[in-house]
Design a protein around this nucleic acid. Structure first.
Length: 566
RNA sequence: UGGCGGAUCGUCUAAUGGUAGGACUACGCCCUUUGGAGGCGUCUGUAGAGGUUCGACUCCUCUUCCGCCAGCCA
């Protein structure tokens, strides 16, 4: 349906990172090269916070005519999986970015990293520690108390080399030894207290199989990986700021290319959680239906929900880049998708909760085909024909037997316009005798008021959407709301975040009636259901026989606001 | 109370010694055959106290508050 799914926006706003790059370019640093990278660990699906980082890194590369690599930080085989690398690649592509042939893995560098480690041992800057993990922990000290030197810290270079070789050769069990850098056990920066470089892990790696049984720690792998790839600007989140002195030290001791690390504040959204660990819990506990559940803040979740790549890119642009902690209001994300879909989506009429109307003075066998505009924001999208007949459905919410103040819709004796059709008047209310529920309305129409040729000058306050009963097609509609009912689900230290799940986060409607235009809707197609919101065909569960639509986002609803404030 | 980093409308984000601006939200009004969209407008902000200066969000001093760091996770 959309042909321009993956075009780039222009007019990007500057930020402190771009200013640093501007200065570097002015000073002709790195031969005026700009090379970034996006370095996910394949241990979960990408979320909207990653989208910010992707847009930042790939966006900078594009705008400065540089390059951006995709590099998987796959240094921990026990958490990682190819399922995740595939989903990550799909998500980045869908967002509209291209790493060309630069798909790299930290595991590509395991041999080089091993050589670097040997070099550090030879320089007397690394040693094998044979303490247990508890002992190491206890000797580390606290932020205010210096750590103690490991009894193994004084081992000779020869002995270190010997044991490290045997570690690699698989002669020890998990946890028997680690390789540590000999840095500073009394540093006030905990990251510098002889950080571990290698641990023994007899685990199958999704790329290197069983070639290795020692795996580098992130802190040992990351900076050198950047260096090997010639990354000029290594952009990461704030929590790695404390690690930068370590990365700089490794680079200096190894005498290799020095990428500049720049830290920015990660994205947080209210009414959701953003850590992969917590999202994994929601998946594993069955609270949501997988990583791509439309309620998840994952890229695949938003995609299935009906968000466009453009809307997410535009959102990433709007939130900005800075160093202070932030919590973005989800309404900004919702604004971004409405803004995009308003311009491009096909309009259509769909009755979510049907109420039958019989137009008593309309001929029983007559069917009129009425002209409807496909998108008032874009004339080139043309028009379509919608069938109209004696029996139609309107939305239950569009009728009130005793109208509230400012209720402009249908009520007994009142007139409203049917979109693209006639003005009707409610003459009679039919109720279920046992429950008192309104089950049908008997109305009359004014033949002179046909849309487009109405010369009666009649003015009505409300316009309703509708579908012709006989021609209507059925569909399942999934109404999504925010996943959590609390703005900050992690804010209460006493209660588990999962207890704040919004019970209304998913409501399924089975009796919805759609205009026949929708019968050919394809997986992923997006529409505006007039007066309701934006919906898309579910990519997993929808079939031509059983259409399933997901509500991406509601339209802004000023009537709901009036009700809420009264 | 060790180190590092932060603090500008309700929420984000600009202003880099010279008119505190934009976006979202909220609230009005106009318009409307989507109570949509659009248009116009309003509210609200430099954490506090001193100092330097003709002039301070910006520079200096002190204070307060917030985040991160004690994984063989990333």
């Amino acid at each position: 349906m959309e042909s321009n799914e993956n075009t780039r926006e222009t007019n990007v706003q500057s930020n402190f990172i771009r200013e640093i790059i501007d200065e570097d370019l002015k000073a002709a640093k790195n031969a005026s090269r700009v090379h970034t990278r996006f370095p996910p660990e394949p241990n979960g699906y990408l979320h909207i916070g990653h989208a910010k980082s992707i847009c930042l890194n790939f966006g900078i590369a594009t705008d400065y005519k540089g390059l951006c690599n995709l590099r998987f930080d796959d240094t921990n085989p026990s958490a990682e999986d190819v399922e995740y690398v595939n989903s990550i690649k799909e998500d980045i592509k869908w967002l509209g970015f291209d790493w060309e042939d630069r798909e790299y893995y930290a595991s590509n560098y395991f041999d080089q990293l091993y050589e670097y480690a040997v070099k550090l041992i030879n320089k007397g800057k690394a040693y094998v520690d044979s303490s247990s993990s508890d002992e190491i922990k206890n000797m580390r000290g606290t932020p205010t108390v210096a750590g103690q030197l490991s009894p193994y810290r004084g081992r000779s270079i020869e002995e270190n080399l010997d044991i490290f070789t045997k570690m690699k050769a698989g002669e020890f069990k998990d946890g028997e030894h680690v390789l540590r850098s000999k840095f500073d056990m009394s540093s006030p920066n905990m990251n510098l207290r002889d950080p571990i470089m290698y641990r023994i892990r007899h685990a199958e790696h999704h790329r290197t199989g069983d070639k290795w049984c020692i795996y580098p720690m992130y802190d040992w792998a990351h900076g050198q990986s950047d260096s090997i790839e010639g990354i000029t600007h290594s952009i990461c989140t704030l929590e790695f700021e404390n690690h930068r002195p370590l990365y700089d030290w490794y680079i200096k001791e190894l005498e290799i290319f020095h990428p500049q690390q720049i830290e920015f504040a990660r994205l947080n959204l209210n009414y959701t959680v953003m850590s992969k660990r917590k999202l994994l819990q929601l998946v594993e506990d069955g609270i949501v239906n997988g990583w791509d559940d439309p309620r998840m803040p994952t890229i695949s979740g938003y995609r299935r929900r009906g968000y466009t790549p453009e809307s997410i890119r535009s959102f990433a642009e709007k939130v900005g880049v800075a160093k202070r902690d932030n919590v973005i209001d989800v309404s900004l994300l919702e604004f971004s998708i409405r803004e995009d879909l308003n311009k491009r989506s096909q309009r259509v009429m769909a009755v979510l909760n049907p109420l039958k109307i019989t137009i008593s003075n309309y001929p029983a066998d007559k069917v009129e085909m009425l002209e409807a505009v496909n998108n008032p924001e874009d004339e080139t999208m043309g028009k379509r024909l919608v069938p109209f007949s004696r029996e139609i459905y309107i939305e239950k919410d569009d009728f009130m037997e005793i109208p509230a103040k400012k209720f402009f819709r249908l009520s007994p004796g009142n007139e409203v316009r049917l979109r693209y059709a006639y003005i009707i008047k409610c003459e009679e209310v039919v109720k279920d005798p046992s429950t008192g529920e309104v089950i049908e309305l008997i109305c009359t129409y004014d033949v002179e008021t046909k849309s487009g040729s109405d010369k009666t000058g009649k003015k009505v306050k409300g316009t309703l959407h509708w579908v012709s009963a006989k021609e209507a097609i059925d569909a399942e509609i999934r109404l999504y709301e925010r996943l959590f009912s609390e703005e900050d689900p992690l804010g209460d230290k006493e209660k588990d975040f999962k207890s704040f799940i919004n019970p209304e986060s998913l409501r399924v409607l089975h009796n919805s009636k759609l205009e026949p235009f929708l019968k050919d809707a394809k997986s992923g197609d997006r529409f505006q259901f007039e007066r309701q919101g934006y919906f898309c065909v579910d990519s997993i569960d929808s079939t031509p026989e059983n259409l399933v639509f997901n509500r991406t986002v509601t339209l802004r609803d000023s009537w709901a606001k009036i009700q809420k404030n009264s």
